[in-house]
Simulated scan of single mutants.
Amino acid sequence: MYYFFILVIGVERLIELVVSRRNARWSIAQGGKEFGRGHYPVMVAMHTLLLVACIVEVAAMHRPFLPWLGWPMVAVVALSTALRWWCVATLGKHWNPRLIVIPNAPLVSSGPYRWIHHPNYTAVTAEVAALPLVHSAWVTAIVFSIANALVLNVRIRAENRALGYAPVSAA
């Protein structure tokens, strides 16, 4: 059942990529400029490897499903997925995992963005930790939570600069 769950998450990610490509074309047509191209492939690779590592650790290390841990983690994954899609719906055509900014487009301050600047990254952080723990793959949870923190450190800095939250350095 866990492998099917991971497959469903993988299919959901593919749907995100379809939406992303459509939105990227629209954003570029509106004069959008892409930032942070270097870290985007790292993000994609990390999320792909997360799904693979979930399967490998559970299969190779014979990790058990522990109901007291697994069911709450399923709930965290479901809630984080709902939050991510709320972000997608709130941003509409402006949503994209690539960092494309349309000049003079107003910052969104509705939906989950009324409370936090980066609700999508909050959801992703919860999901990266919870998804492996659904089936007690604790090594994957630790390793990929650290990797995600490193990637998000780069990503959020680039996004904040691109959106004008932080000054752009001369470098």
Rank of each mutant, 00 (worst) to 15 (best):
M1A: 13
M1P: 06
Y3T: 11
F4A: 15
F4G: 09
F5N: 01
I6Q: 00
I6P: 02
L7Q: 11
I9V: 15
I9P: 01
V11H: 06
V11L: 15
E12C: 12
L14V: 15
L14T: 12
I15C: 08
I15P: 02
E16K: 06
L17E: 12
L17I: 13
V19C: 05
R21H: 11
R21S: 10
R22L: 09
A24D: 12
R25I: 11
W26Q: 08
A29G: 12
A29K: 14
K33T: 10
E34I: 09
F35Y: 15
R37T: 09
R37N: 10
G38I: 06
H39M: 07
Y40K: 04
P41T: 12
P41Y: 03
V42P: 04
A45V: 15
M46A: 07
M46G: 01
L50H: 05
A53C: 11
I55W: 05
I55E: 03
V56Y: 08
E57D: 09
M61Q: 12
H62S: 13
R63M: 13
R63V: 10
F65C: 05
F65Q: 05
F65T: 06
P67D: 09
L69C: 10
G70N: 06
P72R: 11
M73K: 06
V74Q: 03
A78R: 09
S80Y: 05
S80K: 11
S80I: 05
T81W: 09
L83V: 13
L83W: 05
L83G: 03
W85S: 05
W85L: 07
W86V: 08
W86T: 07
W86K: 11
C87I: 08
C87Q: 03
V88K: 00
A89N: 13
A89L: 15
A89Q: 14
T90R: 04
T90F: 05
K93I: 07
K93P: 05
K93V: 08
N96Q: 08
L99D: 03
V101D: 01
P103H: 13
A105F: 06
P106H: 13
L107S: 08
S109K: 15
S109P: 01
S110L: 04
Y113N: 02
Y113L: 12
Y113E: 04
R114F: 06
R114Q: 15
R114V: 00
I116R: 12
H117F: 12
P119M: 11
A123N: 09
A123Y: 00
A123W: 00
V124K: 01
V124M: 14
T125W: 02
A129T: 07
A130Q: 04
L131M: 14
L131I: 15
V134E: 02
H135I: 00
S136W: 13
A137S: 05
A137I: 10
W138V: 13
W138D: 06
W138Y: 15
V139S: 08
V139L: 15
V143F: 00
F144C: 00
I146C: 00
A147S: 04
V151N: 01
L152T: 01
N153Q: 15
R155P: 00
R157P: 00
R157F: 03
A158R: 08
A162I: 14
A162G: 12
L163Q: 05
A166S: 10
P167Q: 09
V168C: 08
S169I: 14
A171Q: 12
A171R: 15
